[in-house]
Design a protein around this nucleic acid. Structure first.
Length: 745
DNA sequence: GAGTTTGAAACT
DNA sequence: CAGTTTCAAACTC
């Protein structure tokens, strides 16, 4: 190859590139996590991760299908292509469009041939790391988190910016699209304008790089002045243009190409217009915004930037609510009012793209980062109003609350959700806005019991008195989320302002028990395969990570973590007098399964998250639950925390998720298992694995334990949850298979 | 809402 | 690793 003219040409290219590479590297490094699981290292993991992202996109899209114009097709197609390529990893319900462009995931070398080959390699890894661990790695994350927090109004740290010199042929040269996804979640303390509440901001940045469809074109571009350098503020990703300069650019998320960033931010309206040009709602949505640059001709250029640039923030529930309350305003105004924006996140507002993007953002950004609590809230809200939603007005660009705040893992799950479901998610105007509920909730309210149905649980907040919310006693902390206003905790340190403390503590706990933040209930991917489409089946492998130790509750109360998680007890349990309705330790299935709470079945928020994370992680976990640990600490929690969300991302593993269209995709706290009984959450959990389409189907979900015991899920109750009703069952395979440690190539 | 029960988490 | 203590959720009244 060295002898080839092309190579020479590239080699002769300006030295500029190293800089770029440096930036990129730097950026990625920032994302790197202190102790990524071995899994993360594997290239396969990338694939999975990417797939996740893709799905996220899908989710977003689904959530906001209408926003996108057809113009975006190229981009969209690109992603789809990616999705396709990644499909090995997971199945997506997405439609696949014809795409001229070829996208390779995972292999990408971000930089052109000239550049350090290492980069290409590194990026994928980075992705892995980042993506891999939704949870946060305190150490690694800290920096970013801090930086993020500190971000000026621009919110784009120079360090983060990936700079690509103009005319860098390399980019153009790349014939493949490289998709890199970085997810970072940060928390920021934000006060909602209305709420004045600390909000958790989760930032997920994904970096996607797309290269021109084919090298040939790229070369053309080389001769020409290829794309101008693209600067991505924090997040920017460069995308080489096609041979023609006029290629259209697509901006996804925050990414700005060719300095368009400012334009977008500064002129949201423009971007909005651009988006208005027509974009497909398809998979890209997720992030956000895919906006064609209005000013530019849209041809080949694709700019896919999602890096830090795209910040997704998990706003506190309240924040979300605020937006919810004013969805119309937002939509109408076209303001990109991301939740954060509205939330008065001064710094981050900037990040918000144009309306278009803004819209997407709204949907996307909020969705991306999810504060577990927020999720819970959202869940609750959603759950509460889910029905309403279904009846509700059409999906606007506005993100439904659910869409709004999603953790990465959640996103993944969301992505799974069919577009149709989106509609459901969209709150109706008439609907009671969940936000209201939350807002109404006084911080003091420990728990949202707004909804008797059990959705109140989704609102769970901690009530810690002595632990300072820095121990696993604290549900918030255990879930990897910051405490928020609704919490009734005292002397709480589990707040963004104490991020360092939180991270340190977390790290400490993890050092003691790597699985401490891992989901307590593990469902193996295998189970998925077992289940297949049969809603009645639940993964046999589903079980509590460590097993319970109940003495007096007979595993029939939520004291029992197994029961709480909606799973049967297993041999690993040391319980006495086990009568777990989901499955007894001895493997017998209690006849009383029916007793299960009604609401369980509904949503699966929790379950979703968990599942997602688990799924990604777990394949191994089934057989080797402990292993999963290494790979996946808390997906959700991490995502929630400022930390690098990827750190805990579990290595992608094959996983299948079933989601009800009702869509409560939003997962709640990971830490908590999917308890069927838990109204809001529990519903989710089960749904994930087995989401009954109809009540009847739901009625009995059986899970076989590893031991072969069959467990009927609490869901058995029919019709208990409204959410279920409309629920459509989706089985998604987020990840084809557990990534091998060996390099993907 | 206060008090009790429970079992996980933390500690020794 | 076992026993004890601490803790906060779950539960009861």
């Amino acid at each position: 190859m060295q002898d080839s003219p092309v190579f020479n040409y590239i080699s002769n290219l300006s030295p500029i590139e190293p800089v770029k590479s440096v930036h990129l590297t730097h950026t990625f490094n920032s994302y790197s996590f202190s102790s990524p699981p071995s899994v993360f290292t594997s290239p396969h993991g990338n694939c999975h991760k990417e797939s996740r992202f893709l799905k996220r996109h899908n989710l977003l899209e689904t959530s906001k299908p209408k926003v996108w114009s057809e113009d975006v097709n190229s981009v969209y197609s690109s992603e789809e292509t990616l999705a396709d390529s990644t499909q090995a990893c997971h199945e997506s319900s997405e439609q696949q469009e014809n795409t001229a462009q070829k996208i390779s995931i995972g292999d990408a070398s971000i930089e052109p041939c000239n550049e350090n080959p290492n980069i290409s390699i590194e990026l994928p890894q980075v992705l892995k790391c980042n993506l891999g661990s939704p949870g946060y790695e305190p150490l690694l994350c800290c920096d970013e988190a801090n930086s993020l927090l500190e971000l000026p109004g621009n919110g784009k740290p120079a360090s983060d910016v990936a700079y690509v010199p103009e005319g860098s042929e390399k980019d153009s040269i790349e014939g493949e699209m490289h998709l890199l996804g970085l997810c970072q979640i940060e928390e920021a303390k934000v006060e909602g304008p209305n709420c004045g509440v600390d909000s958790l901001i989760t930032e997920v940045s994904d970096l996607l790089m797309l290269s021109p469809p084919n090298v040939t074109e790229a070369f053309k571009g080389l001769n020409k002045q290829l794309n101008p350098s693209i600067e991505l503020g924090n997040f920017m990703t460069l995308i080489p243009q096609s041979a023609t300069n006029d290629g259209q650019q697509m901006h996804i998320g925050n990414a700005v190409a060719s300095g368009s960033e400012h334009e977008i931010e500064d002129h949201p309206s423009e971007s909005a217009a651009a988006t208005g040009t027509g974009q497909r709602q398809d998979n890209l949505a997720n992030v956000a915004l895919v906006a064609s640059h209005p000013s530019e001709n849209m041809d080949n250029k694709l700019v896919y930037a999602r890096h830090r640039g795209i910040r997704r923030r998990c706003l506190d529930f309240e924040m979300a609510i605020v937006q919810w309350k004013n969805p119309a305003d937002n939509s109408n105004t076209n303001s990109s009012t991301a939740i954060s924006d509205e939330g008065n996140v001064g710094n981050e507002k900037q990040l918000l793209p144009t309306k278009h993007s803004g819209d997407s953002r709204r949907c996307v950004l909020p969705g991306i980062g999810l504060h577990l609590n927020a999720l819970a809230s959202l869940k609750d809200c959603k759950n509460v109003k889910i029905e309403n939603l279904s009846s509700g007005r059409q999906p606007n660009l506005h993100c439904s609350p659910s869409s709004v705040q999603l953790s990465a893992s959640q996103e993944l799950q969301l992505s799974l959700v069919p577009a149709s479901s989106e509609i459901d998610l969209v709150p109706s105007e008439n609907e009671v806005q969940p936000g209201e509920d939350f807002q109404q909730n006084s911080p003091k309210k420990k728990r949202c019991k707004l909804e008797p149905a059990g959705e109140g649980e989704s609102c769970k907040r901690c009530n810690c008195k002595k632990s300072k919310c820095l121990k696993l006693y604290c549900e918030c902390f255990a879930a990897g989320v910051y405490c928020i206003e609704p919490c009734a905790c005292h002397d709480c340190f589990n707040k963004p302002i104490h991020v360092e403390t939180v991270l340190q503590t977390r790290q400490q706990i993890e050092s003691r028990n790597p699985l401490a933040f891992a989901p307590k209930v593990i469902r193996s991917s295998d189970s998925v395969s077992e289940i297949g489409d049969d809603p009645n089946k639940t993964p046999a492998s589903a079980r509590h990570k460590r097993g319970c130790n109940c003495k007096k509750s007979s595993c029939l109360k939520k004291y029992c973590e197994c029961y709480q998680g909606g799973v049967g007890c297993s041999i690993s349990c040391r319980c006495e007098g086990c009568k777990n309705t989901y499955g007894r330790k001895d493997g017998s299935v209690p006849s009383g399964l029916e007793a299960e709470p009604e609401e369980e079945t509904e949503a699966c928020e929790k379950g979703v998250v968990e599942n997602a994370s688990l799924k990604t992680e777990t394949k191994n976990t089934e057989d080797h639950p402990d292993q999963s640990l290494a790979t996946t600490p808390l997906p959700l929690s991490r995502s929630l925390l400022p930390l690098s969300f990827s750190s805990k991302c579990k290595p992608p593993r094959s996983s299948v998720i079933t989601i009800s269209s009702s869509g409560l995709l939003v997962g709640q706290k990971l830490g908590k298992s999917n308890a069927p009984w838990s109204q809001s959450q529990p519903k989710c959990e089960k749904p994930l694995e087995t989401v009954p389409d109809d009540d009847s189907s739901v009625t009995c979900i059986k899970t076989s334990s590893p031991n072969g015991k069959r467990i009927s899920s609490p869901n058995c109750k029919v019709g208990s949850s409204p959410t279920r009703r409309g629920g459509r069952k989706l089985i998604l395979q987020s990840i084809s298979s557990f990534p091998s440690l060996t390099p993907h190539h």
